[in-house]
Design a protein around this nucleic acid. Structure first.
Lengths: 229, 229
DNA sequence: GAGTGGTCTAGACCACGTT
DNA sequence: ACGTGGTCTAGACCACTCT
């Protein structure tokens, strides 16, 4: 008969969704709840903490716990490696390196990644195919000051992303989604028409305070990024 | 000198990011860690559990805890009410109702929301402005079978979203991002050119297994959705 | 000042999955 | 079978923050 934290969590969740505890209302405190459910306060605490993490309730010391008026609507997207993304759809993945060159970082890149003057960067352009059809165009810059070993890596067989995840255990990331237009170059790679709307992901990655890489991923027209919560 | 779960978490985090514990390697078990940090096992457990939630380590009973080879790259986006989104940028929010009508749900909507034949839906078109400039176009359908009370709500002063969040405490949501082109109608509302790329969010919401609403939010050209993690 | 959540402890038992 | 994480307990003290 002892309630687990999952029991408590789901029971309280249903009280909220069914309107028994209306938005903005005060929830009984942990000691009372522990008594009603016949469990330890720590158990209630865990349930409530998770509900707070999920954005359903708001907790403040002394003030107590309230049902959120507007539940936090946070969407979580998994950003898998392209390979996993494609193979996950049951399609055959193919990678191709378009170009690979060491360049002085252009101004816009230096500004974005906060790089010093005259920084060298490795500029890679790659294509990812699903069942032979163009799927994603990758335009990547790697900061050679931070990752000099990238200079001698062979990217002809597998993409820079796969190398990077094995090289950098964890990092700060800024990711941004937007809509763009296919220009002349993209139309060739993605086999679409000029002016087609394309979904674009830009990602900048830092490690120990220094920029590691910036990448712009452009998907073929019609791509959707979908999630549930 | 007793370590808190945050101490443990951040220390382990740094061990991972600094490469001391390399990707794929096995982490000491909870009892050993509790001994090294001089704290209770529950404290270590909480730290490790959060690291697992954050996608940095992978835990399996008996097999132990391993540093993830490819850290889960999940991005979390807050999807606030447009009002909050705009006011959060320090801009003045203005709402305007464009049209409001009861219609028989078109086929594409019935398919998407799994509605029966001849369902009635409330069709709302609204605009959201930031400092007087068009910010977001909202094209919304509300299932009147599930929410008949929507029929008599006045949406002329505040948007349907604000009414919905107060009416529905929690629900299942499918959200999807894509890139589209501004058509003739959108150009008028968003004051942009025909063929401009526009960022689009589509969201379908269910409550207790039944469809509640479908909305397509179209942002003015140039809009970005950005987050860090 | 006092009430609430936040956290820690030491110990216990359970559940799962590898062996 | 056994080792690991998963969870619960009963009690304690602390840290906010509202009044």
């Amino acid at each position: 008969m002892k309630a687990t934290y999952k029991d408590v969590k789901s029971d309280i969740l249903s009280k909220i969704t069914k309107g028994e505890w209306s938005p903005g209302s005060l929830v009984p405190n942990e000691v009372e709840l522990a008594a009603t459910y016949g469990c330890a306060r720590a158990t209630v605490n865990r349930a409530m903490r998770e509900l707070a993490d999920d954005g359903l309730v708001e907790r403040r010391r002394k003030a107590g716990t309230r049902v959120r008026t507007a539940p936090l609507r946070t969407a979580r997207f998994d950003i898998p490696l392209v390979r996993a993304e494609i193979e996950g759809k049951g399609a055959k993945y193919r990678y191709s390196l378009v170009s690979n060159s060491v360049e002085t970082a252009p101004d816009w890149l230096r500004a974005r990644l906060n790089l010093p003057d005259q920084s060298e960067a490795l500029h890679l352009v790659c294509m990812h195919y699903a069942d032979g059809d163009p799927y994603q165009h990758e335009d990547r810059w790697i900061n050679l000051t931070k990752l000099p070993q990238a200079r001698s890596v062979d990217f002809s067989e597998s993409g820079p992303n796969e190398w990077l995840v094995s090289e950098i255990p964890f990092s700060d990331v800024e990711i941004s989604f937007s809509a763009g237009l296919a220009d002349q170059i993209l139309t060739d790679y993605l086999t679409c028409a000029k002016g087609d709307p394309v979904f674009t992901i830009e990602r900048s990655t830092w490690w120990e305070g220094q920029a590691v890489t910036y990448v712009r991923l452009t998907y073929k027209p019609g791509h959707r990024l979908t999630t549930r919560y």
